[in-house]
Design a protein around this nucleic acid. Structure first.
Lengths: 207, 207
DNA sequence: CCTACCGATCGGTAGG
DNA sequence: CCTACCGATCGGTAGG
């Protein structure tokens, strides 16, 4: 990868996507029309269109930009925490922080996109599915490490399902109700469930 | 309420809604256009439109018809179970059965509708919100009874959040992956969590 | 319940 | 990146 000059076109494209991501989270990837995006950018429809080649191209690029934002805001900082249970806590609480921050911006981009495209085969669905799987795999991997380190006991995939389902369910309820007690309950519950799976240091065995 | 003759118009409206509910679950309440509905019914646009007066009217009627179906399929049968923990189990497993049955039909209508309308104020959002709250209240009420009867311990609202979040999270993951192991994990987890909150008969106190 | 229509907007194309 | 345009479809109206 040679560092390359960022062209003017690339910068414009990035600016369009910075508008498209929160817009799509609010009104959906299908509701995200080229005309509306052009209006909000003060550009012509043709100008916006040219960067993506098709509506589907715009949608795929928006999904990827949304994941980049999620990775920068949640995944990368969490990976800086010590591996095992500490990193796990960072991944889970980071997600809820991400949801809370987007209270009036559609909440979790991927939950909304997932439900919108779960019955529409195509490139957009594949990307959403792949990126969500990558995030789940990160959690499962960290659970495996925590089990291997003797910090936790239980089946990593079961615990990952529990944690992600609670997180996603909290996002859905919070988006509709805007009630902060939903997130408070989710945080307390995730913490309690992690504690329940945790092995007391006295019981840990060396490996 | 006098029993009244069902008019021809009412029957047609019910037939339209029987098509509209699964269609909206798949493609969304916004994607549910009058023209497409007319095509699938073999009717004219004007003919369909006349029954609802506006797009919003169609959406509200569709939400209500979807809830009626959910009540008939899940809530009413569950209310036939003995009150307390048995009824609770029926409510929760009934929801997952409802989700499983709609694998290729958009899954839970209300999860999809909730995420689509959570940022769009109006009548549609209000109905979705009200009906989901009614369902949650049914679960909380049953938890209160179970606690009062000495079957369970814990905070009814906390346990209701846990159960509904797991259920909703399972629906979201199942719709995208179509992987039956998601529902199997959800059933096992809900059962385990209920068992964890359960009081052994030997420990139950009379009230 | 139909036909016939309205203005607006959709995704996309052509040519520059 | 723009203007100018295409056919299709949108929600909705009028008149019957």
């Amino acid at each position: 990868m040679k560092p390359r000059r960022i062209t003017h076109a690339e910068r414009t494209k990035a600016e369009i996507l910075a508008v498209a991501v929160p817009l799509a989270a609010r009104i959906g990837l299908e509701g995200l029309t080229i005309g509306r995006l052009a209006d909000e950018m003060g550009m012509s429809k043709g100008g916006v269109f040219a960067h993506f080649g098709s509506k589907e191209g715009l949608q795929v690029a928006t999904v990827e930009a949304a994941f980049q934002a999620f990775a920068d805001e949640v995944l990368t900082p969490a990976m800086a925490a010590p591996e095992g249970i500490a990193r796990l806590r960072a991944l889970l609480s980071g997600y809820l922080d991400y949801v809370e921050k987007r209270k009036d911006a559609g909440g979790c981009f991927f939950t909304a996109a997932s439900l919108e495209f779960d019955d529409r085969p195509g490139e957009v669905r594949e990307r959403i599915s792949g990126l969500l799987a990558a995030r789940t795999e990160l959690i499962v991997e960290e659970l495996r490490k925590a089990v291997a380190r003797g910090e936790l006991q239980g089946d990593p995939e079961d615990i990952a399902f529990e944690a992600t389902a609670i997180s996603t369910g909290a996002n859905v309820q919070f988006q509709l109700s805007k009630d902060p007690s939903v997130l408070a309950r989710a945080r307390a519950l995730l913490e309690a469930r992690l504690a329940a799976h945790e092995l007391k240091p006295s019981k840990r065995r060396a490996r």
